[in-house]
Every structure is written in C-alpha cells, then in structure tokens.
Write a protein that binds this DNA or RNA. Structure first.
Length: 271
DNA sequence: ATCCAGGAAGTCG
DNA sequence: CGACTTCATGGA
C-alpha cells in the first residue's frame, strides 16, 4: 500500500483480465495470480484484482486516465442493455473498460494487427520496443516515431512483421516528418477515419481501432473477422466491412465503440 | 497439412 | 464504386 496506489472498488465495472484480453492492447502480461503488468508508452503499472482493483505505479494521474476511471460504465451498460446481443455480451465481458492509449502506439500496433494473430502481434511489438525503445527499469518504452523512422523495411521484416514491414517504416517516417496525430481529436469520426487512412498500412478497420482506443471516439465500429461472425449470427448473411459497419452503427449509435468491444470479447470467449 | 488471423494495397471491370 | 487477388508469418 502506497499513496500512489489507485483503488477501484466497483468490480462490476472493472475486470482487468477482460479489459486486457479484449484486443485493444498488446503490451501486457500475467505476472502472478490475478496480477498483470501493463505497459503504455514509456510507463508501467501493476494491476491486481482481488476484492477491489489495485493499480500500482509512480504516475497515478496517467493510469487514472488510461483506465478511463472518470467514465460511468454502469450507465453505458444500462443504455445498451436492451439492444441486440448486448445482454449475453455484457454478461461475459461487462468488466471491460475502453482504454485511453497513445495515438502513435495505437497507430503502429494496429498496422501490425492487420490479418494477424494476437499472440504474434504481441511478439512483433515486443521486439520493436526491445530494439528501438528506451530501456527502462525492467522493460522497454514504446519507441518514438523518430526512432522508428530511422529504420527501413528490412529491419521490421527481420522482426517478423511480414508484408507490413514497409508500412511501419513509411508511416513512422510520415509522423516523424509532421503528420499530426493530434488532428483527429478535433475531427468527426468519419473525417478522422479518412485522415488516418492516408497513412500506409491504415485502412478503415485499423483507423477505427485507433479512433476508439487512442481518441475514445465511440461512434466508430471496427469490423474484423470476429465482428463479421457476429453479423452472420445476427442477420444470417455475410456482408462487406462497409455495410456491416453502417448497419451496426445504426443499431448502437453513439455507444457503438463500447458495443463493439462487448461483442468482440463475447464472440472470442464463447467462440 | 491446411486453415486462419482485430485487413490493406493493388488491379481490373 | 465493388469485387477479386496478393501479401509474410506462425500458431492451432
């Protein structure tokens, strides 16, 4: 116990395993029974879930915002409760919180995520941090755009990035050269999506993930292979990413991003 | 061995 | 616009 510790007593609205395993973050690990190490940018915290959730770090203000602690998830779940598929999804993933993460880290992370498995995404990102991130006490920071831009595609290919390797070097170069990752904060969801899609390796789905996990825009709906399965369950038919997104946003409205996380987690947990 | 993964880019109608 | 193909990698 320490004055820097954050104690979250409302366990119904915060389950650390669900929050970490719903695919919005790739730099974390289980370090003990119900104890997780979480890395973001150049920071680290340790989260233990018992009677309450305890977040240990040396920067509680950062992690307070990171875990979205000022947001009322009870109210969000009540507003979604009577919408399609929500009852069972919230039943299995009701402790999910949508994190407030760093835009550049999300940009790179979700470029790597394209057509990839989560365990492999974690490995590639860990190697990028180890190779280019500042060495901290027991871990590595996420690298800066300048550090990443200094390497070419061959470097990322050697780390196992596959055909995404040139996307990483080119997009890091664009950011280092002034592509402004603050702009999306002042744009509508659709406008910000188009803006991010001008970067190499960023398409509509990756852009939606960045908008949701870095900018907390909840009127977006990342459509991946799992959400396509959910759409099939709901309607009995297949659809393109574009039409699935349009349909699901019309169903869940301004809470689309939250609904998407509950659906994604529920589908992956219960196949 | 074959399939698949938090898809995007390139090409062709 | 939409459909269709290709793109590395490795775990299941």
């Amino acid at each position: 116990m320490d004055t820097n510790d954050i104690i979250v007593k409302n366990r119904e609205d915060f389950d650390i395993r669900q929050t970490l395993d719903c695919g919005q973050i790739f730099r974390y690990s289980l370090v003990g029974e119900n104890v997780y190490e979480v890395l973001s940018l150049d920071k680290r915290c340790v989260v233990e879930q018992g009677e309450s959730v305890v977040i240990k770090s040396d920067d509680p203000a950062y992690w307070h915002r990171f875990f979205d602690l000022d947001n009322d998830y009870g109210a969000i779940k009540r507003a979604l409760a009577d919408k399609p598929m929500m009852r069972e999804s919230i039943d299995s993933g009701g402790g999910i919180r949508i994190l407030n993460q760093d835009p550049f880290e999300m940009l790179i992370s979700f470029i790597v995520s394209a057509n990839n498995h989560i365990p492999r995404i974690k490995g590639i990102l860990a190697r990028i941090c180890e190779g280019l991130g500042e060495k901290k006490d027991g871990y590595f920071a996420f690298p800066t755009a300048e550090a990443m831009a200094a390497k070419d595609a061959d470097y990322y290919a050697a780390l196992g990035a596959g055909y995404r390797a040139p996307y990483l070097s080119e997009t890091a170069r664009a950011v280092a050269d002034g592509f402004d990752l603050e702009n999306p904060r002042y744009m509508s969801g659709d406008e910000a999506n188009r803006y991010l899609c001008t970067l190499k390796g960023v398409g509509p789905k990756v852009a939606d993930c960045i908008l949701l996990f870095a900018y907390h825009k909840s009127d977006v709906f990342p459509v991946d292979t799992w959400i396509k399965k959910v759409y099939r369950d709901m309607t009995g038919k297949d659809g393109t990413g574009k039409e699935i997104r349009k349909y699901l946003v019309s169903v869940y409205g301004d809470l689309s991003g939250y609904a998407q996380q509950y659906l994604f987690f529920g589908k992956r947990e219960n196949n």
